[in-house]
């Protein structure tokens, strides 16, 4: 059974990483005095996304539902997050590489093209969906039903068998 104190700590780490991600997405364009600043910010951001995905996967592996083999139940519930996390990580890495490649020699000049603008809009929009899904999933992971045997789990198991 997941302890409330442990859950609070994990939730705090997850939300801190999300807050950092949001901060970089919002203000990274203002912090482009030197290309290396953006490079460091982007590397930490991508690692934060990866960490967040690893944490949520570890939390899923820790559930009683997963341990009894009802992976489909978890996937059905959290599929959207896993898809959007993968999509967001991919888009972020692509956008960061492209932007830094254009700005590496001269950081304070106009680099925008239609393609970059489209990728930017796509990446930032997916970021918002990722925030929403991740926050919701992190809160849902506190569901006590996921960590012990209950009538709800028995019903879900019966439904999965049919």
């Amino acid at each position: 059974m997941l302890q409330a104190s442990n859950f609070s700590l994990v939730l705090l780490i997850q939300l801190t990483l999300l807050a950092y991600d949001l901060f970089v997405n919002s203000f990274s364009e203002l912090l482009r005095g030197a290309p290396v600043i953006q490079l460091v910010l982007f590397i930490i951001q991508d690692i934060a996304i990866l960490f967040n995905v690893i944490i949520i996967l570890l939390m899923m592996f820790n559930t009683y539902v997963f341990q009894v083999g009802l992976v489909s139940l978890l996937l059905e519930r959290f599929r959207a997050l896993l898809i959007f996390s993968a999509l967001y990580l991919t888009l972020s890495i692509c956008f960061h590489c492209w932007l830094l490649n254009l700005r590496w020699l001269e950081s304070n000049h106009f680099v925008w093209t239609d393609g970059l603008q489209a990728l930017f809009v796509f990446q930032r929009t997916v970021a918002v969906l990722y925030y929403y899904l991740y926050k919701r999933t992190a809160e849902y992971m506190g569901d006590p039903r996921l960590y012990k045997d209950s009538l709800w789990l028995r019903d879900a198991f019966a439904r999965a068998r049919q």
């Binding site: 409330a4 859950f7 609070s8 569901d143 960590y147």
Partner: peptide, 10 residues
């Protein structure tokens, strides 16, 4: 004080 309460508080 359960995990549900923590989630609700957050």
């Amino acid at each position: 004080w359960t995990t549900r309460d923590v989630a609700l508080r957050v």
